[in-house]
Amino acid sequence: MSIQVLYFAGLKEALGRSGETVDLPTGISTVGGLREWLVAHGREPLASTRSLRCAVNQEMAGLYAPVADGDEVAFFPPVTGG
């Protein structure tokens, strides 16, 4: 299944990219699973970022949130607007 992954702020900088399209193997069905798969494929900053946050299809989501083909999943540090 194909997932559009986005990175923001310090995480984007650490990874040297703002996003990527990944083709996930069968059996990975959650945000947490996606994160582990990305870490195993060289995206180590996803494991070391303190208090990593995520969003699925532009809604805040937890690591147990499901991911499906065509979803947009974003990873980022805690927000600091305002």
Binding site: F8, A9, G10, M60, F76, P77, V79, T80, G81, G82
Partner: peptide, 14 residues
């Protein structure tokens, strides 16, 4: 609105 914006709206300051 301001308190929720601070913790829920995806902005980052550098």
């Amino acid at each position: 609105i301001m308190d929720y914006l601070k913790t829920r709206a995806p902005f980052w300051k550098r």
